[in-house]
Amino acid sequence: MKRPSTWLIAAVALLAALVYPFVFSSTEATTIGFFALLYVGLAASWNINGYTGYISLGHSAFFGIGAYTIALFATRLGLQGGYGLFAVALLGGLVAGVAALPLGFIALRVRTMHSFVIITIAYVMMLQLLAYNLESITNGPNGLGVPQPAWSGAFFNIPFYFAALVLAVGTVLLSAWIRGSRFGLGLMAIRDDEDKAAGVGVDTWKYKLTAYVISAIPIGIGGAVYAYFASYIYPQTVFDPTIDLGIVLSVFLGGTGTILGPIVGALIIQPAQQLLTLYTGNLGTAGWDLLLLGALFLVVILLMPSGIVPSLVERARRTSVREAVTKADETTPGAQTAVGGNGTS
């Protein structure tokens, strides 16, 4: 994010996000906007841990922790719905971050990628079971409600939309800052070669755990905001592997390890998914959405394993190189052989 054009694009995108709910003010449109921005936040946050190359399929554990935090806190203290509850959502992030410490400690002890992935999947299952079984606290399978604000009609979605926007922008900035920092450099060194990273003095264990904990916090906040928006949560709706699917698919579609990738991915996947369920839901055939989502996922991974953003960047780079070469050809006739002669030298 150094060139002025990047800042310009960011400013335009932000402006578009700010006016969107006023241009498209129907409840459907703002709901889609809310979910798109929520997932930008979730995906960007997940990607902070993703910088290390350790793929977590269990970050919905933190989503659920955040959701249950706000629900429990608000109902136990008898809080009223309103703008104040967004502050409680921050608490959801804090609790998720604290929970991430022991969970990350255990998951990162197994140094192999596959074991890490499997343990993170197990976390979601375990927390879901905890939410089912600790009935005295979580109300078990009957779920918990979150006090609702008095906002009505089409306006209802607007505060949630902006809460999601703040979360999205904040998380993207955090993720960008980390990527550019010494810490982020260490994380990416771990991704490329963990042993070498340790060899050159990166405290890999501390770095990985820190990234894991940091990435849990915005997701916890996101879970809390979602719970407030949804007004009622159940163990299976917040500790839900399909949330992980949405996050991971967004990041991979956009491009892992990039700042822009999760944004682009989430802005494509979420509206598509929302529209899909909106339409296929009416047909009464719930299988189609899974089928299409799976097919999309396959196409992305097989055709663009590095994601949209890196693929486009690579393509742009090639075009600019080609242009430079053509330009060179025009000015100096001998350049063709010099550039094309790589193979023979």
């Binding site: 190359g53 990628m113 596959h114 299988g287 959405d289 899974l290 089928l291 799976g294 097989l302 394993p305």
Partner: peptide
């Protein structure tokens, strides 16, 4: 390892969709 996890997950989703239909 990593890509197979994602690809096979996608295969599972598609199969799940088909079976659901």
């Amino acid at each position: 390892v990593m890509l197979s996890i994602l690809v096979s997950w996608a295969v599972a989703l598609i199969l799940e969709g088909v079976v659901g239909l």
